[in-house]
């Protein structure tokens, strides 16, 4: 192992880990506020990637500005999708047993996957952005700019979210709703609205992750959401369920871990090793690597 190789591997791990982190963060945010797993979260990521692909030809090729436009568009599409799902699937089942939203989001997952496969075909679709392209020197290594940008995006967005959640009244209201919705209502928080906003933000994160992974792989496809859900969920477990900082850390760790296992063990063992360790982790530290003990409200 030489230093350039190590840097290259680190950047690769952080790029894909960044995507996992965004998915996990959105998943954790939604789980935190609604206390229900959104199994169609990966399909939001997939649908947004397809929608952005559809509108991409209309975007001017303005380098970084196009990239920014793509991110913003993905966030908006994701937020809209999230609000529709919250209103259409979660809200009507608010008083139903816990299993109900799980079943219906699994149904939604299958529906969206098949719908996209029906409309667009189940093959790979090329997804290429005009920017970022090429490589840049990082110390002695030469790494793709795209990966650095993806990692950067996956750091900046959670940081902005963190500021929004801790420094604004709406952010405090979202956190309060996640901790104790009834008491939040006693403070005057419209918890129906905060769940909607949390769902929109969480889904926007999924949408952003979807276009980032599209750019990273160069393709989008109708079943891409399944991997996203599994990896995002794994990252959430690593970070500790309901822990937002943990979700980001968990995603990055997972990405790094995968790259290093693939590099120094074998790509054919990556998933097997990662998921075995995940099971061990769940048994030894159910609160996650990063998380504290699970708060009693969970």
């Amino acid at each position: 192992m030489t230093l350039p190789v190590l840097i290259d591997q680190l950047v690769s791990g952080l790029a894909i880990g960044g995507v996992y982190a965004l998915v996990a963060l959105g998943f954790a945010l939604i789980f935190g506020v609604l206390r229900a797993a959104q199994f169609a979260h990966g399909e939001v990521y997939m649908v947004v990637a397809f929608l952005v692909l559809a509108v991409l030809p209309w975007f001017p090729a303005l380098g970084p500005l196009q990239f920014l436009l793509v991110i913003v568009t993905a966030a908006i599409f994701g937020a809209i999708a999230g609000m529709l799902i919250e209103r259409g699937v979660f809200r009507p089942l608010a008083d139903a047993p816990h299993i109900a939203p799980i079943i219906s989001t699994i149904g939604l997952m299958i529906l969206l996957q098949n719908l996209v496969a029906y409309l667009k075909g189940s093959e790979l679709h090329r997804f290429a952005l005009a920017w970022p392209q090429g490589n840049v020197s990082v110390g002695p290594a030469s790494v793709p700019v795209l990966k650095l940008v993806i990692f950067g995006t996956a750091l900046v967005i959670p940081a902005l979210l963190q500021v929004a959640l801790t420094r604004t009244q709406l952010g405090r209201a979202i956190r309060a709703t996640a901790i104790d919705a009834e008491t939040a209502r006693l403070m005057g928080v419209n918890t129906a609205r905060t769940s909607l906003v949390a769902f929109a933000i969480g889904s926007a994160l999924a949408g952003i992750a979807g276009v980032l992974v599209g750019a990273l792989y160069g393709v989008v496809y109708s079943t891409m959401g399944v991997t996203a859900l599994v990896k995002g969920y794994a990252a959430t477990i690593i970070g500790g369920v309901g822990n937002l900082v943990g979700a980001v850390a968990g995603g990055l760790l997972l990405g790094l871990f995968e790259v290093f296992v693939a590099s120094y063990v074998s790509p054919r063992w990556t998933d097997a090793i990662v998921y075995t360790l995940l099971i061990v982790l769940l048994a030894l530290r159910p609160q996650g690597l990063v998380g504290r003990a699970i708060p009693e409200k969970l």
Binding site: S12, I16, A262, S263
Partner: peptide, 20 residues
């Protein structure tokens, strides 16, 4: 001599090996 699993979409680590 690099194997990869079916459904692999991210070849980063294999490509780093190829690069070197």
């Amino acid at each position: 001599d690099e194997p990869y699993q079916p459904d692999t979409k991210d070849f980063s680590s294999s490509i780093i090996k190829l690069k070197n």
